[in-house]
């Protein structure tokens, strides 16, 4: 397990220039109760943060906001990614495409293109930096092909490069999705419940892969998880959400049983989480 430990000087710099900076964002869909309510969060470069909380607590919505896929409420708040404003006062900035290319998103359901090969799916990570016509017809340059093959090799999927994506297991598809973000050369990876639909062995392998990428490439990661044991084992920092609020933000060793009960209720004590 590759836990990243920041030195004191680096820590100060990281806090001054966080990779992700969220200020007072809220989100309401229609006239319902807010899904996010006054969220403030900084994520330092190279951090691996576990975002936990029960279903409906706002984890996915928060990740979609950081990815620039959903605009925040127009009544204030902003999200900065690597010192560039991604969205402010309900509007995603015009050059969000360039910023978004730095953010890789790993989805719960992998979101691969079923009829494409594993290699083509991985190469699609490079579409943002490929000449448009080349991208339309999957004509990627030699360098990107090497990057994609290397990414597949890192996640242990190179031998399946020519197979169709829909012929793979859930765990294998998730590893291809991670390879796609590696090919994208994202400096931030957001993962939305990446192991929710996987068996324990596949889940372990996916988390190990993410942890290695974080340790070796110093890629900043925010991973929403339902499995607290995985969160505590692989992530140095835990951010817990409840009803649209952040109710805990700190190192994993401070996320005690008492805090778990605070976040999940008494079910946690009975071992249901």
């Amino acid at each position: 397990m590759g836990a990243t430990v920041l030195q004191p000087g680096a820590m100060q710099s990281a806090l001054m220039h966080p990779d992700i900076s969220i200020r007072s964002i809220s989100k309401t869909f229609g006239s319902n109760k807010p899904i996010l309510n006054g969220i403030n969060l900084d994520v330092a470069p190279g951090e691996m943060v576990a975002l936990i909380g029960s279903s409906g607590s706002g984890k996915t919505t928060l990740l979609r906001h950081i990815a620039g896929l959903t605009p925040v409420n127009a009544d204030g708040g902003e999200i900065e990614v690597r010192d560039h404003v991604l969205q402010k006062n309900g509007k995603v900035t015009r050059d969000h495409g360039k910023l978004r290319a730095r953010i890789g998103l790993v989805f719960q359901q992998h979101n691969l293109i079923d009829r494409y090969s594993v290699l083509t799916n991985t190469l699609l990570g490079a579409i943002g930096r490929t000449h448009c016509v080349g991208g339309w017809f999957c004509r990627f340059n030699r360098q990107d092909q090497d990057i994609a093959r290397n990414a597949l090799s890192r996640v242990g999927m190179l031998e399946h490069a020519d197979r169709r994506a829909d012929q793979l297991s859930g765990g294998q598809q998730q590893r291809v999705a991670i390879a796609r973000t590696l090919t994208q050369q994202a400096s931030i990876i957001l993962a939305d419940e990446p192991i929710a639909s996987l068996d324990p062995a596949s889940a372990e392998r996916v988390m190990r892969t993410l942890s290695e990428i974080n340790a070796v490439d110093r890629v900043t990661m925010v991973i929403s998880l339902h499995q607290i044991d995985f969160a505590l084992r692989y992530c140095q920092r835990v951010v817990a959400m409840k009803q649209g609020h952040i109710v805990f933000d700190g190192p994993r060793d401070q996320f005690t049983r008492h805090k778990i009960v605070d976040v999940y209720g008494s079910d946690a004590e009975m071992g249901r989480v």
Partner: peptide, 22 residues
């Protein structure tokens, strides 16, 4: 899949060609 192509930086036509057409 359209969202995945969008996140990788694909434009309107790339999203239609890769996310929807297959």
């Amino acid at each position: 899949p359209v969202e995945a192509i969008r996140m990788a930086g694909g434009g309107f036509i790339a999203r239609a060609l890769h996310g929807l057409l297959p």
